[in-house]
């Protein structure tokens, strides 16, 4: 009977990912995710650089910030690694935020990287948080509680607004206005016992897919337009293969 319980506990732990698969017995290492922010392939420079979006609007970007959270590595069938307390605020203005270091990643091969753009609903209802989730970071709505999952602001002559500004603050964690998006990327198989780097392109141009800045230039509340923009930036990431 005792043995049966032990087996059950072991299976439960294995199933829930508390124990890594036995094949992963190699030494843990580290993995850095390096994010390269670009606009349509060109390096992203804030404020003065001019870009042209899919619709043909000329624009510049003042600020680009987003949460990258719940990072997971798998070998497509098995969870290999789940980053503990995985919340990162990536900011185009802060190069340090564009490198995410994952420590104690188990040795062994994995080929898939998964993460969320935004903050999961549990964190959204858990009260006062710190670190990347500290409300002083300016990515938090106090009145209608919730994290802003991603922010993009800039200017374009196409915007009939004060100073030709456009503002996208994308949030919303409650159905039917959820803007949390999952990203799944195939990455080159990582060899064990090494310090590894995975470089990702983050193409801000994807935000503007089928967006006419003349019509859509201020999205500051959860719902329809926010969902559409979230669908757009879900496609922001791609793996750079050297």
């Amino acid at each position: 009977m005792k043995r049966l319980i032990l087996i059950c506990v072991f299976l439960f732990l294995l199933f829930t990912g508390f124990i890594d698969a036995p094949v992963q017995s190699l030494k843990p290492g580290s993995l850095s995710l390096r994010l390269r922010l670009v606009f349509d392939g060109k390096p992203l420079n804030l404020n003065n650089a001019l870009y042209t979006d899919e619709h043909g609007d000329t624009l510049s970007i003042d600020a680009c910030r987003f949460y990258l959270s719940n990072i997971v590595l798998t070998n497509q069938t098995q969870l290999i690694y789940r980053e503990p307390y995985s919340y990162h605020l990536v900011d185009a203005e802060d190069s340090v935020s564009q490198v995410i270091q994952l420590d104690r990643v188990p040795g062994g091969s994995f080929s898939e990287l998964r993460f969320l753009i935004g903050v999961d609903s549990l964190a959204n209802v858990s009260g006062a948080m710190d670190g990347a989730l500290d409300p002083i970071k300016g990515m938090y709505w106090a009145w209608n509680t919730g994290y802003i999952n991603a922010k993009l602001t800039g200017r374009s002559p196409s915007c009939n607004t004060l100073h030709h500004a456009f503002e996208f603050h994308i949030g919303g964690y409650l159905p039917p206005c959820q803007t949390l998006r999952t990203v799944v990327l195939k990455i080159p198989v990582i060899k064990p016992n090494q310090e590894q780097i995975v470089s990702l392109n983050v193409d801000v141009g994807t935000w503007f897919t089928q967006v006419d800045l003349h019509k859509t230039n201020s999205v500051l509340l959860p719902c329809t337009e926010a969902m559409r923009l979230a669908d757009n930036y879900q496609r922001m990431f791609s793996v750079i293969t050297e």
Partner: peptide
Amino acid sequence: GGVNNLEVQAIN
């Protein structure tokens, strides 16, 4: 009912 947790209420 815009605020979901006592702790974050005070921010308003």
